[in-house]
């Protein structure tokens, strides 16, 4: 068992894909670095914090991107975002069985804020184009830094999100909310509060994550493989169904102030026990309780 949470972007790809099948595009030897970080005397990375390439998953042809949280929290800058957009657009030409996004990102890289924001928008357009062309885009979220900001939106544009309990998914990170709105709005140091608000278990119960797996690279691999046969549906009726589901979420839980309230309303007995259950026990406990 290899922890997905603790692994690097390259380590995760090595464990996820068929051995030796990854061919990286614009690898670090090409030294395509951010042109903006030097202005701030900030060190650059030769891959700008993202690995993109082609590989095989149980023999199926996939395109992959993996964000490296160890470099600036996986934040999206001009080059980082352009690599992701280029990879997604490559799928339009090469028609793989799917695109896997191993997300780990705080969102827009504030050091090159405008370029990062526009880059995320370009990634969004590209994800939507790939899905509209019938190729599934699958998100894996279980890294140390979670997935926030624009990448939190990107993730939910995709066909499915696979998370571990350790994964986190949201829009504004707890620190940003605390810094801007005050500690009484969101105490980012309250680990239990953070995990039960943006962590994998709650996201799975809400229906934001399609699959919840153990913190194990091979568990992510199996989940990704199972989702490759998913056919993207971007029709009006699919969006009307999503609209109805989001209406129902607002109606049922709009007045809840804590995840525990939501879990209780979902009919989970002793909701305060959920955070301590291991993944298998958790899944057994909540199997018919998801929103």
């Amino acid at each position: 068992m290899t922890s997905y949470y603790e692994d690097s972007a390259r380590g995760r790809l090595a464990g996820l894909l068929d051995p030796g099948s990854l061919t990286e595009i614009l690898p670090p030897t090409e030294r395509v670095v951010s042109p903006h970080l030097r202005q701030l005397d900030t060190p650059a990375a030769f891959d700008d914090g993202i690995v993109v390439g082609e590989g095989r998953l149980a023999g199926r042809r996939v395109l992959v991107a993996a964000q490296e949280g160890g470099f600036m929290g996986g934040a999206v800058g001009e080059v980082h975002g352009a690599k992701l957009t280029g990879l997604l657009e490559r799928a339009l030409d090469t028609r793989p069985d799917g695109v896997l996004l191993l997300v780990e990102s705080g969102g827009v890289r504030l050091h090159e804020a405008n370029a990062g924001l526009i880059a995320v928008s370009e990634v969004m357009r590209a994800v939507l184009a790939v899905r509209a062309s019938g190729i599934p885009v699958i998100v894996l979220d279980g890294g140390t830094f979670g997935c926030f900001g624009g990448m939190g939106i990107v993730s939910r544009l995709c066909d499915a999100v696979v998370m571990s309990e350790e994964g986190r998914l949201g829009l504004s990170g707890p620190e940003v909310i605390e810094t801007t709105m005050g500690v009484e709005e969101f105490d980012s140091r309250d680990r239990a509060l953070v995990w039960r608000t943006v962590g994998g278990k709650h996201r799975y119960l809400l229906g934001e994550a399609a699959t919840l797996v153990e913190d194990d690279v091979s568990a992510f691999r199996a989940a990704a493989l199972a989702l490759l046969d998913h056919k993207p549906d971007v029709s009006l009726s699919a969006l009307e169904a999503e609209h109805a589901a989001l209406a129902s979420r607002l109606e049922r839980f709009g007045d809840c102030r804590d995840a525990l309230d939501i879990w209780e309303r979902l009919g989970v007995e002793e909701p305060e026990r959920l955070p301590i259950l291991d993944t298998a026990d958790f899944l057994a406990t909540v199997c018919d309780r998801r929103a």
Binding site: G152, S155, G170, L171
Partner: peptide, 10 residues
């Protein structure tokens, strides 16, 4: 965030 605002934005 609790209700999944990123999902609503998406």
């Amino acid at each position: 965030e609790l209700l999944g605002i990123n999902g609503y934005m998406a």
